[in-house]
Amino acid sequence: MAILISFDIDGTMEFGDPPGGITLEMVRRAQELGFLIGSCSDRPPSAQQALWEKHDIRADFVAPKHGLDEVKSRFEADDYLHIGDRDTDQQFAERAGFRFYWAYDAIHEPWLTLGDAQDLP
Protein backbone atom coordinates (compact mmCIF):
# COMPACT_ATOMS: atom_id res chain seq x y z
CA MET A 1 0.00 0.00 0.00
CA ALA A 2 1.66 3.22 -1.17
CA ILE A 3 1.25 6.05 1.32
CA LEU A 4 2.42 9.63 1.01
CA ILE A 5 2.85 11.80 4.11
CA SER A 6 3.38 15.52 3.89
CA PHE A 7 4.59 17.38 6.96
CA ASP A 8 4.16 21.03 7.70
CA ILE A 9 7.29 22.38 9.42
CA ASP A 10 6.72 25.25 11.86
CA GLY A 11 4.66 24.08 14.81
CA THR A 12 4.69 20.53 13.43
CA MET A 13 8.25 19.26 13.11
CA GLU A 14 10.65 19.19 16.04
CA PHE A 15 12.98 21.44 14.06
CA GLY A 16 10.21 23.94 13.29
CA ASP A 17 9.74 27.40 14.77
CA PRO A 18 8.03 26.83 17.13
CA PRO A 19 9.07 23.21 17.50
CA GLY A 20 6.29 20.71 17.00
CA GLY A 21 5.87 17.18 18.25
CA ILE A 22 6.80 15.25 15.10
CA THR A 23 10.32 13.96 15.50
CA LEU A 24 12.87 13.06 12.89
CA GLU A 25 12.71 9.51 14.23
CA MET A 26 9.02 9.34 13.33
CA VAL A 27 9.79 10.53 9.83
CA ARG A 28 12.60 8.02 9.46
CA ARG A 29 10.33 5.22 10.65
CA ALA A 30 7.74 6.16 8.06
CA GLN A 31 10.41 6.22 5.39
CA GLU A 32 11.70 2.81 6.43
CA LEU A 33 8.20 1.47 5.96
CA GLY A 34 8.35 2.64 2.37
CA PHE A 35 6.18 5.71 2.72
CA LEU A 36 6.82 8.70 0.52
CA ILE A 37 7.62 11.64 2.77
CA GLY A 38 8.19 15.35 2.31
CA SER A 39 7.02 18.75 3.42
CA CYS A 40 4.48 21.34 2.41
CA SER A 41 5.09 24.48 4.41
CA ASP A 42 5.12 28.24 4.25
CA ARG A 43 8.91 28.00 4.43
CA PRO A 44 10.28 28.53 0.91
CA PRO A 45 10.84 25.24 -0.93
CA SER A 46 14.59 25.82 -1.13
CA ALA A 47 14.69 26.27 2.65
CA GLN A 48 12.62 23.13 3.20
CA GLN A 49 15.04 21.14 1.07
CA ALA A 50 17.96 22.53 3.05
CA LEU A 51 16.30 21.62 6.35
CA TRP A 52 15.76 17.99 5.33
CA GLU A 53 19.32 17.73 4.09
CA LYS A 54 20.62 19.26 7.30
CA HIS A 55 18.86 16.50 9.20
CA ASP A 56 20.12 13.85 6.84
CA ILE A 57 16.74 12.88 5.44
CA ARG A 58 16.13 12.46 1.74
CA ALA A 59 12.74 14.04 1.21
CA ASP A 60 10.75 12.80 -1.75
CA PHE A 61 9.21 16.23 -2.26
CA VAL A 62 9.09 19.77 -0.91
CA ALA A 63 6.37 22.23 -1.85
CA PRO A 64 4.76 25.44 -0.71
CA LYS A 65 1.81 25.00 1.61
CA HIS A 66 -0.70 25.43 -1.18
CA GLY A 67 1.18 22.94 -3.36
CA LEU A 68 -0.37 19.71 -2.06
CA ASP A 69 -2.44 19.21 -5.21
CA GLU A 70 0.70 19.40 -7.30
CA VAL A 71 2.39 16.86 -5.02
CA LYS A 72 -0.60 14.57 -5.46
CA SER A 73 -0.34 14.82 -9.21
CA ARG A 74 3.36 13.92 -9.11
CA PHE A 75 3.13 10.86 -6.89
CA GLU A 76 0.76 7.94 -7.17
CA ALA A 77 -0.29 6.65 -3.78
CA ASP A 78 -3.19 4.84 -2.15
CA ASP A 79 -3.44 7.34 0.64
CA TYR A 80 -2.31 10.93 1.05
CA LEU A 81 -1.86 12.49 4.51
CA HIS A 82 -0.88 15.98 5.54
CA ILE A 83 0.19 16.77 9.09
CA GLY A 84 -0.02 20.36 10.29
CA ASP A 85 -0.82 22.70 13.14
CA ARG A 86 -2.85 25.48 11.49
CA ASP A 87 -6.28 25.90 9.99
CA THR A 88 -4.56 26.75 6.72
CA ASP A 89 -2.91 23.32 6.74
CA GLN A 90 -6.29 21.73 7.15
CA GLN A 91 -7.88 23.85 4.41
CA PHE A 92 -5.16 23.19 1.86
CA ALA A 93 -5.05 19.50 2.71
CA GLU A 94 -8.78 18.96 2.36
CA ARG A 95 -8.91 21.00 -0.83
CA ALA A 96 -6.20 18.80 -2.36
CA GLY A 97 -7.82 15.56 -1.24
CA PHE A 98 -5.37 14.78 1.55
CA ARG A 99 -6.43 13.41 4.89
CA PHE A 100 -5.46 15.91 7.51
CA TYR A 101 -4.03 15.21 10.94
CA TRP A 102 -3.38 17.81 13.57
CA ALA A 103 0.25 17.64 14.66
CA TYR A 104 -0.71 16.95 18.27
CA ASP A 105 -2.65 13.86 17.19
CA ALA A 106 -0.03 12.78 14.70
CA ILE A 107 2.60 12.27 17.40
CA HIS A 108 0.96 8.86 17.88
CA GLU A 109 2.06 7.98 14.33
CA PRO A 110 -1.34 6.77 13.14
CA TRP A 111 0.19 5.97 9.75
CA LEU A 112 2.09 3.03 11.27
CA THR A 113 -1.06 0.96 11.17
CA LEU A 114 -2.00 1.91 7.65
CA GLY A 115 0.11 -0.83 6.11
CA ASP A 116 -2.11 -3.31 7.94
CA ALA A 117 -5.08 -1.70 6.23
CA GLN A 118 -6.54 -0.53 9.51
CA ASP A 119 -8.69 2.46 9.05
CA LEU A 120 -7.71 5.83 10.36
CA PRO A 121 -9.86 7.30 13.07
Binding site: D42, R43, P44, P45, S46, A47, P64, K65, H66
Partner: peptide, 16 residues
Protein backbone atom coordinates in the same frame (compact mmCIF):
# COMPACT_ATOMS: atom_id res chain seq x y z
CA UNK B 1 16.63 31.82 13.30
CA UNK B 2 16.15 30.92 9.65
CA UNK B 3 19.31 31.61 7.68
CA UNK B 4 17.55 30.76 4.47
CA UNK B 5 18.26 32.61 1.25
CA UNK B 6 15.36 33.03 -1.15
CA UNK B 7 15.40 32.04 -4.77
CA UNK B 8 13.40 33.51 -7.62
CA UNK B 9 11.52 30.19 -7.74
CA UNK B 10 10.68 30.49 -4.03
CA UNK B 11 9.21 33.92 -4.65
CA UNK B 12 7.22 32.88 -7.67
CA UNK B 13 5.82 29.76 -6.00
CA UNK B 14 4.75 31.41 -2.74
CA UNK B 15 1.06 31.22 -2.00
CA UNK B 16 -1.14 34.17 -2.73
Amino acid sequence: HRPEPLTVEDYLSARW
